[in-house]
Design a protein around this nucleic acid. Structure first.
Lengths: 200, 200
DNA sequence: TGTGTAGGCCAACAAGTGTTGACGCGCTCG
DNA sequence: CGAGCGCGTCAACACTTGTTGGCCTACACA
């Protein structure tokens, strides 16, 4: 069975020999990300993805094993969360909101993951992993009591994912119409409170 | 083509003659709600729903026309939002959070709708309709400036739907573990601020 | 009691799914 | 120059999906 890794920067072990098919592999991943983002897991068919990438569906199988493997290879998320210890503590909320908005607007992997996570158990578990490995550690940086970090990070996640859901997936008109600056102004204090304010 | 209405209370026109097949129709709708809630639209197959209801798949077609019709009949949402004018204005946030938690915990129609809305355009439009027809009017009751009601209601929706998403769909462990009282204590001030505080 | 009709099941359909294996071209290296 | 292998296509598989039409049964009403 061929390797299923791609050219994402977090590769390990061998320095990855360049292959003649790298362009095709990348085209498949691009098409897959877009289809997963707009259609969700079930309706993003391998045939449609292959058509978008202008290759035969069997290539997808050869390079990524099966549909699950394709999803795993196409949807890898690095939130690139900032180091909150480098900021004044009272700016954590604002920094998180702006960073999340940036991420969601430039990257449809996040939309893909949210759409898939809502209907697919594997997708939901993937999101749990991202929360645990990427969001929680950042929350620990600013939470007063580290024991409360999971609960506080979870609260922050409800607000941020709720924003993403209504703005980028469900597309509620008033949420979409909200200017970016207003979103930041409203949500930053909420996140700041969830992360740093004393328990109510 | 047979009627596709069910026994929901908002029927209109004729007083709905009782049919011998009412029990079957109800069993189909029950099974459909559960399947849509756990599997989403695509993976909730008519065959599986029929098996749950212990009838033949063709019955579903006869009574509800097609899968879309079944979804429309099975997933009708009435949020039963309280009349906020009857409360002191500063309790609106708390009232909304407690009411939403009640609704989500007793009713898997809401989970079904959220799962479907995330991957299905018709589902998303249905949610937009509920927001417009049920949430917005309530927001108008408490918003200082009615012109700001859509934006404020949208902000409230991000927080409430984000809670529902992480707690009942994605099932983030720390969000699920959060005691109901703590959820209310943390979210009520947020909603209160979104709905009634002066613009930031 | 006879009959029409509503309720229900069975079998089949066309279309689309993920997945597999055989086959051919063309580059690369000996 | 020739052999090998990576890249890609074609055709088919087994299966599931939504959907349809025919047939049988049993109830309700004449």
């Amino acid at each position: 069975m061929p390797r299923t890794d791609d050219s994402t920067p977090h590769d390990s072990t061998p320095p990855a020999p360049p292959r003649r098919s790298d362009a095709t592999r990348a085209a498949i991943l691009d098409a897959a990300r877009e289809r997963f983002a707009t259609d969700g897991y079930e309706r993003a068919t391998i045939r449609a993805i292959a058509r978008d990438a202008r290759i035969d569906p069997s290539m997808v199988m050869r390079y990524y094993g099966n549909k699950e493997g394709l999803f795993a290879a196409a949807v890898t998320v690095d939130l690139e969360l900032p180091d909150l210890t480098a900021l004044p503590r009272e700016e954590a909320g604002r920094a998180l909101v702006t960073h999340f908005l940036d991420m969601w607007e430039e990257n449809d992997v996040l939309t893909a993951l949210l759409r898939v996570g809502a209907t697919n158990r594997a997708g939901a578990e993937r999101m749990q992993g991202i929360f645990r490995d990427q969001v929680l550690p950042v929350a620990r940086q600013v939470c007063p009591d580290p024991e409360q970090a999971p609960a506080r990070a979870a609260l922050a996640a409800t607000q941020l994912l709720g924003l993403a859901l209504t703005r980028y997936v469900l597309r509620f008109p008033p949420t979409v119409a909200l200017p970016r600056g207003e979103v930041v102004a409203w949500l930053a204090p909420t996140l700041q409170r969830y992360l740093t304010a004393p328990s109510p």
